[in-house]
Simulated scan of single mutants.
Amino acid sequence: MPHYPDALLQRAAKIRLVGFDVDGTLTDGRLHYASDGHETKSFHVQDGMGLVLLREAGIELALVSARISPLVAARGSELKIAHVHVGERSKLACMQRIAAGMGIGMDAVAFMGDDLPDLATLRAAGLAIAPANAHPWALAAAHWVAPRNGGEGAARDACDLILQAQGRLEGILAHGEHP
């Protein structure tokens, strides 16, 4: 298991809600369009498993995208994520609304983002996370940078950090299969 600094583990131990930007975080950030104009996206299966493990551990999840994409809604539905928001002009306001509805402050919120539209949310989150290939502005705002790139397992790295900080990873590993 990776070794994390104590201050990072303390931040991650408080998290009750995790929000993820989509393009560049859960995907590699490339936009693919078919000849008929339909968009396609690739999601990493390990990221999906990490999100399921967080959800099953009782941590609320949110997908928050500035772009409008039915693919994001479909992926959120497949993973049983209650908070899927597309076309969000202010990701910070969206995350604040979800947190307020849960009765928690932003110190109990983690957010993973990779570029300018994510900066305000990263700066306000109790735990700000960026994928390794995030824009330098997002990297500077992050409390922790995942070792992998967006769309290549970075979200799973974030999920594993939070699960470890909350003492849940050992039980998952002992079970040895999807709960």
Rank of each mutant, 00 (worst) to 15 (best):
T27V: 03
G87H: 10
W137L: 15
E177P: 00
R16E: 11
A125N: 13
V22N: 02
L169C: 02
A73T: 11
Q46A: 10
I98M: 12
D21K: 14
L116F: 15
S42V: 12
I129Q: 12
G171R: 07
A100I: 12
L116C: 12
D114R: 08
E170D: 06
V45A: 10
I172H: 03
M49L: 13
E177W: 04
V64E: 00
L92E: 13
A128I: 14
P5Q: 09
H85M: 13
R156F: 01
L173I: 05
R30Q: 13
A140P: 06
A158M: 04
R75P: 01
D36E: 08
G171D: 04
S65E: 00
L53M: 09
D23E: 08
V45G: 02
A108K: 15
A13C: 06
E88Y: 06
A57V: 03
G126F: 11
A158K: 06
G153E: 05
D160G: 02
N149K: 10
I104R: 15
L53Y: 05
I15Y: 08
L61Y: 00
H85R: 14
F20K: 11
T40C: 05
C159S: 07
R168W: 00
Q10I: 05
P136D: 12
K14C: 09
R123F: 12
L61S: 01
G171A: 09
H38F: 09
L63R: 00
P147C: 08
L139H: 11
M95F: 11
D36R: 09
R97E: 15
A100N: 15
G105C: 13
R11T: 07
G151E: 00
H85P: 06
I172M: 01
L116N: 13
D107T: 15
D115Q: 06
G105L: 14
V72L: 05
A100D: 15
A142I: 08
P136I: 12
L122V: 14
Q166G: 01
A110F: 13
L9T: 05
G113E: 12
R16G: 10
I59D: 00
A108T: 12
R11I: 08
H85K: 13
A82F: 04
R156D: 01
